[in-house]
């Protein structure tokens, strides 16, 4: 079990559209993923970078069970994802969790933070009331937020605070694999730095594995162990972070690195 990678993806494909319509014509098909193969090792941060339309969000949604794969094989924590899906959303949620890009949109505006965080504790972990209260307090401590936040509504929080809550919800399920979809791109730089620090500390303390999706190369270089570059639904390069940034091989990776804005021009 411990030798199994956290996530193993082999030849994953996904096509949107292309169904036959009522009067025979096929609708326009978009290949979001074409034969993607990746391994997320235990305890590592694997970054997936790419521009809009490269298929990185589709990949993330398949990994957490929000989309079904078109073809290929996905194993999560050594178990076949199709079998996990048949076991129902609860089995999936216990193994892998997702942090959304827009923290405010991912929190129900009409529920308090406490109610939102209780759902995974009750449904996925099956904790009773007393145990839930303890866990809620622990979670607030883990993401550096005061307990009073539990009684607040999402719109009363700043972007950074809301993202901490979204991370707390992912932690609540006690899954040790997290798929983070652009978790800091909606945040101001100083808040972004704090959330990155938080993510790094949580990973160390709780022994998590991260699949970190981002378009910001500087952020990726700061936090990732390895980087996969996606382009039009394919992984064009997969390398240790240091190697990839020092000697990019694929021309697309080179282009990305060249066009990233920098503070100090050489």
């Amino acid at each position: 079990m411990s030798q199994d990678p956290a996530i193993r993806i082999r030849d994953l494909t996904k096509t949107f559209g292309g169904e036959r319509r009522l009067f025979g014509r096929r609708s326009h098909a978009v290949e979001a993923l074409r034969a993607v193969s990746l391994d997320l090792r235990r305890g590592e941060t694997l970054a997936v970078v790419g521009e809009s339309g490269s298929g990185k969000s589709t990949l993330a949604r398949i990994l957490v069970g929000l989309e079904t794969p078109g073809g290929g094989a996905v194993e999560i924590a050594g178990e076949d994802a199709a079998r996990l899906r048949r076991k129902g959303p609860r089995a999936f949620g216990k193994t892998v969790q997702y942090v959304f890009q827009d923290p405010v949109a991912s929190l129900n505006p009409r529920k308090t933070i406490g109610e939102i965080l209780s759902a995974p504790l009750r449904l996925l972990c099956g904790y009773d009331r007393a145990r839930r209260e303890t866990r809620l307090r622990e979670l607030m401590q883990a993401v550096d937020m005061p307990e009073a936040t539990l009684s607040r509504y999402p719109h009363e929080l700043s972007g950074g605070q809301a993202q901490r809550m979204a991370i707390a919800r992912a932690l609540a399920a006690e899954a040790d694999i997290l798929v983070l979809d652009e978790p800091v791109s909606a945040l101001d730089v100083s808040v972004q730095a704090q959330v990155l620090l938080l993510l790094q500390r949580l990973k160390r303390e709780l022994n998590l594995s991260y699949l970190f999706i981002s378009h910001d190369l500087a952020v990726v270089e700061a936090i990732a162990d390895r980087v996969a570059v996606m382009h039009f639904g394919e992984v064009v390069e997969l390398e240790e972070t240091r190697t990839l940034f020092a000697t990019p091989v694929h021309p697309y990776t080179e282009g990305l690195l060249a066009s990233a804005p920098r503070l100090k021009r050489a």
């Binding site: 270089e221 940034f245 503070l263």
Partner: peptide, 18 residues
Amino acid sequence: LIACVPEIGEGENFLPRV
């Protein structure tokens, strides 16, 4: 503000600095 901006080339040194 400037200190919180990660720079390409800084890599793993960024987070300890912040």
